[in-house]
Amino acid sequence: HDVTIHAGDKTIHVHGASEEFLRIIEQAKRDGIHEEELLRLIEELVK
């Protein structure tokens, strides 16, 4: 999957995102996670 995530003034493109990655991001959004926290989460996941 190619994913584009908008968080605040940043746009992150993730190529080859796994289903698990997508679920984590969707869950985080539903939980109302702060955008900066979401960015950190994404950066950890894509290392």
Rank of each mutant, 00 (worst) to 15 (best):
E43R: 08
H6Q: 15
A7F: 14
E35K: 13
D9Y: 00
L41S: 01
I5P: 03
D9L: 05
R30H: 14
D31F: 02
L41W: 07
H15M: 06
L39H: 07
I12V: 13
L39W: 09
H34V: 15
H13R: 07
L41M: 12
L45I: 08
L38E: 00
R30N: 10
L22D: 07
R30W: 04
R30Q: 13
E20F: 00
A28D: 00
G32Y: 05
D2K: 11
G32C: 01
E35T: 15
V14D: 03
R40Y: 07
L39R: 10
T11F: 03
E44L: 12
I12K: 02
H15Q: 11
E26W: 00
L45V: 08
R23H: 13
E26P: 00
T4D: 11
T4I: 14
E37L: 11
E37Q: 09
E19P: 11
S18N: 13
D2F: 12
R23G: 12
R23F: 06
I42V: 15
L22E: 11
L41V: 07
G32Q: 07
V46R: 08
V3W: 00
E44T: 13
K47R: 13
H6S: 14
A28K: 05
D9V: 05
D31Q: 12
I33F: 12
I24M: 12
H1N: 13
D2S: 10
E36N: 13
E37H: 08
D31P: 02
L22G: 04
L39K: 08
T4Q: 08
A7E: 05
V3C: 05
T11K: 10
I42N: 00
R30E: 13
E37K: 05
V14K: 02
I42G: 00
D9W: 00
I12D: 03
L45K: 02
E26T: 08
G16L: 06
K47A: 12
K10C: 04
D2T: 15
G16P: 03
L45D: 01
I25G: 00
L22N: 05
R23M: 12
T11C: 02
R40I: 12
R23A: 15
E26R: 07
H1Q: 15
S18D: 13
E35R: 08
A17C: 00
H15L: 07
H34M: 15
E36K: 10
I25E: 00
I25Q: 00
E35I: 15
H13W: 00
H13K: 09
D31C: 06
E43M: 13
I25Y: 05
R30K: 09
H15G: 04
I42W: 14
Q27E: 12
I5G: 04
E26F: 01
A17L: 14
E43H: 10
G8F: 01
H13Y: 01
R30I: 12
G8K: 03
A28W: 09
E37N: 09
K47N: 13
I5C: 02
H13T: 13
G8Y: 01
T11M: 10
D2V: 15
I12W: 01
Q27A: 13
R23K: 14
T11P: 06
A7W: 14
E20V: 01
I25W: 02
D9T: 13
L45W: 14
A28H: 07
V14S: 02
F21Y: 03
A28Q: 03
Q27L: 10
K10I: 13
V46H: 07
V3Q: 05
K10A: 09
I24P: 01
E43L: 14
E43F: 04
A7S: 08
V14I: 13
I5F: 00
D2W: 08
E20Q: 05
Q27D: 12
E20C: 01
G32F: 05
V3T: 08
F21E: 07
L22A: 05
A17Y: 04
I24K: 09
L41T: 03
E20N: 04
I25D: 00
E37I: 09
F21C: 06
V14L: 12
K29P: 01
L39C: 14
H15T: 09
